[in-house]
Design a protein around this nucleic acid. Structure first.
Lengths: 246, 246
DNA sequence: TGACTTAGTGTCTTTGTGTCACTATTATAA
DNA sequence: TTATAATAGTGACACAAAGACACTAAGTCA
């Protein structure tokens, strides 16, 4: 037999269930800004295990319909929020014998940023409630299912790190925005204030946003509106942005 | 029934094989420095699928003996090289319906740095050959099994990125080393030369290495020997190190 | 009209890196 | 013994980008 024939033979007789393999799922930390707070989407689980507990949304890969892991995650997000993702990235994969009572399990954790506009959260048979909760509130007062507190903390840390040297927060704002609004978004995530002049210099020098010509009018002096260049929703700066030195 | 009793009942009747779950494995890109070259460990697969092809080392989780994913990876590394890892980090997780001919599969990719000293590579029933190959050579001339060329490229990119703003290369050197040796290691990985003065200023200012008091004698002027502080094998610098401006 | 608020700028300081010529200390070979 | 090459290590200025902060600009609201 040739190598190819032998391999075909091998595959015909291959039974995936013959070996012990871990349960494998995806989970996601979906961030948005609402009422000047950084919030995360949580679901109350309607099924065992961890029935009735708060958890990050997630689920199993559909081996029939999902071609890739990204398909699985996009599908899950759409099931809960009905919207497209603005920014999605893998954070880390967690696997151990004890993190799920059903046995050895692996979960691939993602972080997503979405714009909070016209979103209606959707419950289904797997989740009896779906809500946005402020990140600080969750970390202080919520005991999440499985190891989701750890996953949440890691995702938040990743977000904070990236906000120090990328333009990620643009993904949390609408099409057009003022520099003050953008700075406010950075500050909400980082948890400290940024010097106005440094911030503006940095963003304008990067040439990743463009004046629309319109102004935001409302309270006090009108502000220039900007929109992001298509390719610049994840611009990497050369240096990190710092907080106040004293 | 209470919630707890109901959950026990659920678990007793839970059969992991009832659902379709993907095949889940780990793969690792193990880097070392040998003969002034950055090299990666490859194995020639002795088993189907991809029998006879070169691949990154990896394998399945042992649900009995491995408590965590890290256990799996450490075990695999020890099987091939017999040594402990100096630095290990998760790079990314790859999953799709087509990356493995056996069906839907997920692999969690790790990157490891090890010191190339007194290592004897070990073949076993799963790999008929185990070798160190220069990274450039692999990328130019080797068609690896599965999607391992992509995994290798991503791992190498991660390494290069981190070398620009961390002290990772310390993990590729012995206990004591000179600043020139350390600089050479940075340059090998980055692929460009660093200005000597900038490099030394940066490392000394970070206070992550200490003079041992000994000198490396040999050719020409003796050089001070340094050793890394325990906690500083992954120091993060505030700014990236750059190549020459022109 | 004047106080208040938010938008946006001018400019000096600070920090860390790039550049590059210079000194220092050894091996090696004439 | 001395010159030369090679590697180790430093001094000093230039430059880039961020921090600090006072200032001007243009609106709202009483």
């Amino acid at each position: 037999m040739s190598i190819t024939e032998t391999q075909s033979h091998f595959l015909e007789n291959y039974d995936i269930h013959e070996f012990d393999i871990p349960l494998t799922s995806v989970d996601m930390t979906i961030f948005t800004i609402e009422d000047d707070l950084l919030k995360v989407l949580l679901v109350k689980r309607a099924q065992f295990p961890a029935k009735g507990e708060w958890a990050l949304p997630g689920g199993f890969i559909n081996l029939k319909s999902d071609g890739t892991l990204n398909d699985t995650v996009s599908r899950k997000l759409k099931e809960k929020t009905g919207v497209e993702i603005s920014h999605l990235e893998q954070v880390a994969t967690y696997g151990s014998a004890v993190r799920d009572p059903r046995g050895w399990s692996v979960t691939i954790a993602y972080m997503a940023l979405i714009l909070n506009e016209n979103i209606t959260l959707i419950s289904d048979e797997s989740s009896e409630e779906v809500v946005w909760l402020p990140i600080g509130d969750i970390q202080d007062n919520y005991q999440l299912a499985f190891d989701h507190n750890v996953i949440l903390a890691d995702s938040y840390q990743r977000l904070k790190n990236k906000v120090q040297y990328t333009s990620l927060p643009i993904n949390l704002l609408p099409q057009t925005f003022t520099l003050s609004e953008l700075q406010k978004t950075f500050e909400l995530i980082l948890g400290y204030n940024i010097e106005k002049k440094s911030f503006r210099r940095r963003l304008l020098a990067a040439e990743i946003i463009v004046e629309t010509g319109e102004m935001r009018v409302g309270s006090n002096r009108p502000a220039k509106l900007y929109c992001a260049k298509a390719s610049s929703k994840e611009h990497f700066f050369q240096r990190s942005i710092e907080g106040p030195r004293n």
